[in-house]
Amino acid sequence: MLIRTEIGVDAAGIDALLRRTFPTAGEAELVQQLREDGLLTLGVVATDDEGQVLGYAAFSPVTLQGEDLNWVALAPLAVDESIRGQDLGRKLVFEGLDTLNEFSYSAVVVLGDPQYYSRFGFEPAVSHALHCKWPGSESAFQVYKLAEEAFIQTEDLAAQSESPAIKVEYSAPFDRFE
């Protein structure tokens, strides 16, 4: 199994993986739109010896109160059903976090199972006064700090705002999930 940054020839394999992994084509269409709009910050793939894509993690930019603070969102994360339970999701996430750290990104947010993502060091975003637009997502919305100053930046934003809560805004292609 090879884990690496995605390249152009992976697009069809990523699309196929997402369409067979999720119940609808929404995630596949999301990644395609992010790629077309130049909003795919990083894509990490896991391929077998024949080059078939068996795992994928996508990272795209988010803003905080409309400001770009070098934060990204992890979505989607997919592992082929035939190899689930082999820790591939963890490897994809950590490869992505390592790469983003090398490129000086500040933090990563994710909307997902808290039990799953807490194993990687994600923590509840609400504990840092962060929220997203999806109602009822408080327990699932989580954050991973890459840079020491990440939460200092959010404190500065909160101090400038009338509300202590900071809204993390995903890019327009995510609007399909409202």
Score class of each variant (00 low, 15 high):
His128Ala: 01
Val44Lys: 08
Glu36Asp: 15
Ser60Gly: 08
Tyr56Ser: 05
Leu18Met: 06
Asn70Pro: 00
Thr21Gly: 06
Gly26Lys: 14
Thr47Tyr: 05
Thr21Gln: 12
His128Arg: 11
Leu18Cys: 10
Leu42Asp: 07
Lys133Ala: 04
Tyr117Arg: 09
Gln33Trp: 10
Gln86Met: 05
Ser118Thr: 09
Gly121Ser: 05
Gln52Gly: 06
Ser139Val: 09
Gly26Glu: 15
Gly26Met: 07
Pro23Asp: 07
Asp68Ile: 04
Asp80Met: 02
Phe122Gln: 11
Arg90His: 13
Leu54Ile: 10
Arg84Ile: 06
Val72Phe: 04
Ser82Thr: 07
Gly66Leu: 02
Ser137Thr: 03
Asp87Ser: 12
Ala78Met: 05
Leu18Asp: 05
Ser137Glu: 03
Ala78Thr: 11
Tyr105Met: 05
Asn70Ser: 14
Leu30Asn: 09
Glu36Ser: 05
Ser106Lys: 02
Ala46Gly: 15
Ser118Phe: 12
Gln32Phe: 09
Lys91His: 14
Glu50Asp: 08
Ser139Cys: 00
Ala78Val: 07
Glu95Trp: 14
Val62Pro: 07
Lys91Arg: 15
Gly43Asn: 09
Leu34Ile: 08
Pro124Gly: 12
Ala125His: 10
Asp68Val: 01
Gly38Arg: 03
Ser127Leu: 09
Gln86Tyr: 08
Leu30Ile: 14
Tyr116Arg: 03
Tyr105Asn: 03
Gln33Asn: 13
Ala129Pro: 04
Gln33Val: 08
Leu64Gln: 11
Val53His: 03
Gly85Tyr: 12
Val72Thr: 07
Arg19Gly: 02
Leu18Val: 11
Ala25Tyr: 07
Ala140Met: 12
Val31Ser: 02
Gly85Cys: 12
Val31Asn: 06
Ala73Trp: 00
Gly112Pro: 03
Tyr116Lys: 11
Leu88Pro: 08
Ala73Asn: 13
Asp87Thr: 04
Ala107Ser: 07
Val126Lys: 02
Glu81Phe: 03
Ser118Trp: 07
Gln32Tyr: 10
Val93His: 01
Leu92Pro: 11
Gln115Pro: 01
Glu36Cys: 08
Ala58Gly: 12
Gln52Tyr: 04
Ser82Gly: 10
Glu27Arg: 10
Leu77Met: 01
Ala28Ser: 15
Ala46Tyr: 13
Glu29Gly: 00
Phe59Asp: 11
Thr99Leu: 12
Ala125Met: 00
Asp113Arg: 14
Ser106Glu: 01
Val109Arg: 00
Leu64Trp: 00
Ala125Lys: 00
Pro114Val: 11
Leu92Arg: 06
Leu64Pro: 00
Ser60Asp: 01
Ala58Lys: 09
Trp71Asp: 01
Arg19Glu: 15
Gly43Glu: 14
Asp80Cys: 05
Val44Leu: 00
Thr63Asp: 00
Val53Met: 04
Leu111Ala: 06
Arg19His: 09
Asp87Glu: 12
Leu77Thr: 01
Phe22Ala: 14
Leu42Tyr: 03
Gln52Cys: 06
Gln52Phe: 09
Asp48His: 05
Tyr105Phe: 15
Ser104Thr: 14
His131Val: 11
Asp37Ala: 14
Glu95Asn: 15
Leu111Phe: 10
Asp87Ala: 13
Pro114Leu: 04
Val108Trp: 07
Glu29Phe: 02
Glu29Gln: 14
Glu102Cys: 10
Glu102Ile: 02
